[in-house]
Design a protein around this nucleic acid. Sequence first.
DNA 1: CTGAAAGCGCTTACAG
DNA 2: CTGAAAGCGCTTACAG
Lengths: 335, 335
Amino acid sequence: MPITIKDIANSLEISPSTVSRALNDHPNISDETKALVAAKAKEMKYQANFIAAGLRTRKSNSIGILVPHITSSFFSAAINGIQKVVSEHGYFTIICQSNENYHDEVDQVRSLLSCKVEGIVLSISSETRIYEHLETLQAYDTPFVFFDRVAPGFDTPTVEANDFTGAYQAVEHLIKRGRKRIAHLGGPDELGISRRRYEGYLEALRTFDYEVNPDFSVFTEPDNSHEHIIEEMFGDKSKMPDALFTFSDELAVEAILKLKKMGLNVPRDVSVVGFGNSNLCEIVEPHLTSVTHEPAVMGEAAADLLFKVIQNRHIPPHQKNRKFDSRVIIRDSSR
Amino acid sequence: MPITIKDIANSLEISPSTVSRALNDHPNISDETKALVAAKAKEMKYQANFIAAGLRTRKSNSIGILVPHITSSFFSAAINGIQKVVSEHGYFTIICQSNENYHDEVDQVRSLLSCKVEGIVLSISSETRIYEHLETLQAYDTPFVFFDRVAPGFDTPTVEANDFTGAYQAVEHLIKRGRKRIAHLGGPDELGISRRRYEGYLEALRTFDYEVNPDFSVFTEPDNSHEHIIEEMFGDKSKMPDALFTFSDELAVEAILKLKKMGLNVPRDVSVVGFGNSNLCEIVEPHLTSVTHEPAVMGEAAADLLFKVIQNRHIPPHQKNRKFDSRVIIRDSSR
DNA sequence: CTGAAAGCGCTTACAG
DNA sequence: CTGAAAGCGCTTACAG
């Protein structure tokens, strides 16, 4: 049987109210009483019951994190950033995964709602097209901020990597290294980040008066093999690209391995630049040039924004939709 | 203002008790009433309050997961396995990280206790030498199971990878490929898994009547560079090892890159086998032979055991301490 | 089959 | 500075 506030009160022959106030460092309680209560609590190994306190105060001291999956290094680094800020506020987190699945996402939102979290850092699944569950969130006055992936039509804070400029910088880098025929291996075309990286690619080409060759850019589906795409794009040496900018490091690695199999040299014949600066970059050979985000910093920013909303603090308009710039980390694959 | 059971009761002009029972599908409630309540709950967008229900029933329907970090692929895969089982039971999880830090671990245990989780899947940090916090858990009748890392002196279920046989198999594989001078690059020597892999290495050597050369095995500390160790071990070509079995894939990759820098060919001059079968294996060149665990399966097993304890179901002695065998996935680094 | 009442462990306005 | 009382949203033994 766990120790409660009442047990401490009885053994000290004071009222539970006083014990509660002493434990919470209420100003009206004498220092002696506080010391007495603290000592007794320690002696009896009292563990506060957050659940009960939360029920009474209507504050659960918890926030939810809902991401597509925790296995990706981007999201797990982001979670670390979020948790850092959350624990500084004395809150704890409930982490959920949607598995990139719309129905799981709806379920998880419902369950976070039932856990009465005070807010959610939310990264919607790539499948999600209907946003009723987010409207429910609003109906319940549960604030949320979008992280990395944003649903249209909501007036909530957002934290995003600036994929457009990241892609632009990657392509600019290739252009400045003298590459002339730059291809793009994109992500799923229904993903916002995937489209924005594509837009950045296009914009860089236009800025430098490069011709846009439609054969040189293609969207891909996750979990497929993309060998045949590489094969097709680089099959004819007389008109193949001399550089490839990919949506992700995973795609870049796949491409590099395939290009090497085809007898092409990276970077001599083809420069390759990935996106994400994952741990793969320093392992593949040649080491992969990649655009880096700072997920931990972005996570902290998201949590900061969420607490501002929870505490009803004012968020200056220019801080409400934060875009984090990226950097290109240059390695051997594009030298 | 969130909708409560009382609001539904009022608008239906029945008692809250009946609403509660209807929502919980109590046998004594008529089907009509149940239908009525369900419809109204939906209409009013009622979201059950788990917190309040948990307080009353003294069941929080949550279990805690405490791991050193979620960033490793091993632990994040394990978490997926755990969450699968947990959600099948209608529970949710609170995931915490100790950052391999003893004090964080103690804090997290305390906070899980205050959240009144009904059990914990626990992987102790590599720093942890004092186990008072686990005794507190026992004092509070909060069951836990050890996952992957086990503290001595507790009579709780454990789920471990069989590191001994995994290492044994790796070395046996190298021996059968004709390697004569097999070295071991170990992990931190205070880690149980690290010692057991070392023991498996030794046992395989002994079984095949290989001489054990003390210069050929060394423990390492995480976060250091280990280039100088490789340099020393493989500096003299006349007496260097012709095979290397490492504690982790990360170490194996580091070793491969360094060996290549030193002008050695993998696998011709040196065969390399890693441990963990991480995503690095198919990226490093040559692709890395590695011992594979099945963290997701292990996670499911841990959650199963935990629920057995929570539900006071009998656990047959032979199922209480589960060891999961590993397999060697053979790739180019040891052909 | 349904309802009134008590209580889970806390906090806090009110009173002194 | 301290206490008695009410109540957060639920569940459930008891009564009918």
